[in-house]
Amino acid sequence: MANAATRRQPLPIAGNTSARERWGVALRAFAGIVGGYGLATLAGIALAVWLPASRAEKALAGCFIGLLVWPGFVMLCFATRRVGRVLPVGVLLAVALAGVAWLGGWRP
């Protein structure tokens, strides 16, 4: 006897999606790719400004931290139910990272 807790939704069939769902995926991908790139760049700059190392080591560390931040933000974009909820988080993170870099002496 199946109740509401054990009923499963049917799997979506390829090509059977609405335009709204397709736009949602496109917006998530765009926000993740473009926003993630910006966050990765700002995180690398903020780290490089504050590290007490040579310029080459700072550049490498900035690149490596960017390789961690970018996929993390892309996953965050697809983990939320709506794209509108992740965009303010990305903007706040970008402002915070830019502020940290600016306090360290970075001038854009």
Rank of each mutant, 00 (worst) to 15 (best):
M1K: 08
M1A: 13
A2W: 09
N3I: 05
N3D: 12
A4G: 06
A5T: 11
T6K: 09
R7A: 14
R8P: 04
R8Y: 10
L11Q: 10
I13A: 15
I13P: 08
A14Q: 12
G15L: 05
N16L: 12
N16Y: 08
T17K: 09
T17S: 13
S18H: 04
A19Y: 11
R20I: 13
E21Q: 13
R22S: 14
G24E: 08
G24R: 06
V25H: 09
A26N: 09
A26W: 09
A26G: 11
A26H: 07
L27H: 11
R28H: 07
R28L: 06
A29S: 15
A29N: 10
F30A: 14
F30L: 15
F30C: 11
G32W: 06
V34Y: 10
G36W: 01
G38W: 03
A40T: 01
T41Y: 12
L42K: 03
L42D: 02
A43D: 00
A43G: 04
A46C: 04
A46R: 00
A46V: 02
A46L: 01
L47W: 02
A48I: 03
A48Q: 02
W50N: 10
W50A: 09
L51I: 01
L51C: 01
L51W: 00
L51E: 00
P52N: 06
A53C: 01
S54I: 00
S54A: 05
A56V: 04
A56D: 03
E57Y: 02
E57M: 05
K58S: 06
A59M: 05
A59W: 01
A59N: 02
G62D: 00
G62T: 00
C63V: 13
C63E: 10
F64Y: 12
G66K: 02
G66Q: 01
L67Q: 10
L67T: 07
L67V: 10
V69R: 01
V69C: 03
W70E: 07
W70L: 13
P71F: 07
V74Q: 06
M75A: 15
M75D: 15
M75G: 14
M75L: 15
L76R: 07
L76P: 06
C77P: 06
C77M: 14
F78K: 03
V83M: 12
V83T: 15
G84H: 08
R85E: 12
L87I: 13
L87T: 12
P88Y: 04
P88T: 03
G90M: 09
G90P: 07
V91Q: 06
L92M: 14
L92I: 14
L93F: 11
A94D: 09
V95R: 09
V95F: 13
V95A: 15
A101H: 12
G104N: 07
W106E: 05
W106F: 07
W106G: 01
W106H: 04
R107P: 02
P108M: 00
P108W: 04
P108S: 02
